[in-house]
Every structure is written in structure tokens, then in C-alpha cells.
Amino acid sequence: MWVIFVMLVLGTGVGYGLRGRRRWLVGVEWATGAAVFALLFLLGVSVGGNAQVMGALAELGTQALGLSLAAMAGSIAATRIVARLIGRRVGL
């Protein structure tokens, strides 16, 4: 797990050094998108090859929808309290 933090911190340092270098940053953005697509494709491949996950796909989708709605409802409720506490001071 520590590799996750090391890669992020290393990247942030390199990114700081690349500030203002447009061409590099466009390349980084492109590579990020490519890495995301490659990884999601690979996630799909391992899902497709896993009969257990494939059989439960509809159920997993229903769970995901419920979790998503619960996450949005919870955060909306919490920010209503935040708005009451700090609303005027941040111009809401």
C-alpha cells in the first residue's frame, strides 16, 4: 500500500517541477487518460473471465445504484448543516 503514496508524492513533486511546461503537461494528460482506459479495459477483461462476477453483474449494479443514491443523499444532508453554520461567511 505504501507504493500508492510514494507514487502520488513522487508525481506531485515532478508535477511541481513541470509547472508552466505546456507541452509536457498535455502529454501527461494524454497518458493519464490512456492509463485509465487501459486499466478499465483490463478490469473488464478480468470481470469477463470471472463467471462468478458475471453472474452477479445485475445484483452488483443494483448495489451500486443504492450506494450512489445513499452517498448523494448523505452528503446533501450534511452540507445543509454546513450551509447553516458557515453559509453567510463564505457568501452562500
Binding site: M7, V9, G11, Y16, L25, T32, A35
Partner: peptide, 29 residues
């Protein structure tokens, strides 16, 4: 399916690369 596609190590190294790139994007922003 080509067997390299289901190698767990491929996803792992791609993830490390992605994390590094995400870091670069954050640092440069």
C-alpha cells in the same frame, strides 16, 4: 485471449503509472 492480458502484474504496474501521472497532474495544477 492473449495470456498477458490477464496477468495481475500488468494491471499493478499500470496502476502505479496512473498514480504517478495523477500526482503530476495535481502538482502541476
Amino acid at each position: 485471449l492473449p495470456s498477458f492480458l490477464s496477468q495481475p502484474a500488468l494491471s499493478l504496474y499500470a496502476l502505479y503509472l496512473l498514480l504517478f501521472l495523477v500526482g503530476v497532474g495535481m502538482g502541476a495544477n
